[in-house]
């Protein structure tokens, strides 16, 4: 058998040590996830009540609402990252720029072609999903066929990130842009919480999509196949899973989620530059690591938690340190519990 033609140490990166045990550690995921999910919900509720008591209803509730908005786009992005890592063992460093791509697709549809925001959102989702699928067919599949090592794939992902981001900048320019929506229109509810109408619309879409994805993963055949691949590729193949189809589907889902997340950021933050997705990438990593890399449910929870924590922190410290809260979470997780809440082992 001819040995593969690439630096041996390139294989090292994401190859699990041959000394790792084969018994699945995600066995029993359903029950423990549900239990932990409920525990987390309980914890969040407790924190909200404490914040209301300490800071007053309106500030605490507003921060929580803002946190849910941010948490939704973090979760949408992080779930995609987790799915791709779980099924492909690939850390998609270009994922942040998928968000940018989706946002700018929506910008094109909405601000340029003046299509309604819902349509623009749909376009963003489809376009980014296709981007993911095209990259899989054009790059990732051929590279896997050539037995490319982890380092190669990582650097290709980074290269793609730069190509996508700067391609968008060449096409659309670096100046800040906004969606063509009425930014003054806002909705007030639950005793004083204010959210922009567009923001609220897209958040609701986002939350619904997250729930649908969670259901899809646990109940549908595709979801089960994705989880089977995430556990053990060779075993899944032997069990008759069409890995090619599942992988394309994974990219479609991850891309679509990222596109939606990008639109949500556009709606929530208001102004965009081509750099925003890349700037969010570390936060997306934080959410994924917090939840347990490769675990989609964990990424969902991690994303929401990250958004909430960041916004809650603004009740106590200057808002410009918001991002630092994300780093702190990332670093603490890596230091204390690299597996995150629900993931596979990160230590050697």
């Amino acid at each position: 058998m001819r040995p593969p033609r690439h630096p041996p140490y390139l294989l090292m990166l994401t190859t699990e040590s041959s000394l790792e045990p084969t018994p699945s550690e995600t066995a029993g995921l359903g029950l423990s996830t549900g239990a932990r999910g409920l525990a987390l919900l309980g914890g969040v509720a407790v924190v909200v009540l404490i914040l209301i008591a300490v800071k007053g209803y309106q500030p605490a509730a507003q921060a929580t609402a803002n946190g849910l908005v941010a948490g939704t786009y973090f979760a949408l992005g992080a779930v995609g990252l987790a799915l791709v890592f779980g099924v492909l063992r690939l850390v998609n460093f270009a994922h942040g720029d998928f968000l940018t791509f989706g946002a700018y697709a929506a910008l094109l549809a909405n601000a340029f072609f003046r299509l309604p925001i819902i349509v623009a959102t749909a376009i963003a989702i489809v376009a980014t999903a296709l981007l993911g699928a095209i990259l899989e067919l054009a790059i990732w599949r051929p590279m896997r066929a050539r037995r490319a090592g982890g380092l190669q794939l990582l650097l290709i992902a980074i290269g793609l990130a730069y190509v996508i981001r700067n391609g968008i900048q060449i096409a659309a320019g670096a100046e800040p842009r906004s969606l063509h929506v009425d930014v003054t229109s806002a909705v007030s509810f639950m005793g004083g919480i204010r959210l922009g109408t567009t923001e609220l619309t897209v958040v609701l879409i986002g939350l619904v999509v997250l729930v649908l994805v969670a259901i899809m993963l646990s109940v549908s055949r595709l979801g089960k196949e994705m989880r089977a691949l995430a556990d053990n590729v060779s075993l899944a193949e032997v069990a008759g899973v069409d890995t090619g189809r599942v992988i394309i589907s994974t990219w479609l889902v991850a891309g679509g989620l990222a596109g939606l997340a990008g639109v949500l950021v556009a709606a929530a933050v208001g102004v965009l530059t081509p750099q925003f997705g890349f700037q969010l990438l570390l936060s997306l990593f934080a959410a994924t690591v917090l939840g347990g890399i490769g675990n989609a449910y964990g990424a969902l929870a991690g994303g929401l938690l990250l958004g909430l924590t960041q916004e809650w922190s603004t009740l106590f410290i200057d808002p410009r340190w918001k991002l630092a809260v994300g780093f702190a979470i990332l670093i603490l997780t890596l230091l204390i519990r690299p597996n995150g809440l629900l993931g596979r082992p990160a230590l050697k």
């Binding site: 994401t14 982890g150 690591v289 890399i293 670093i331 890596l334 990160a346």
Partner: peptide, 10 residues
């Protein structure tokens, strides 16, 4: 101490 991807992210 972390596995490759995590080390890069760190």
């Amino acid at each position: 101490r972390l596995r490759g991807d995590y080390l890069a992210i760190a």
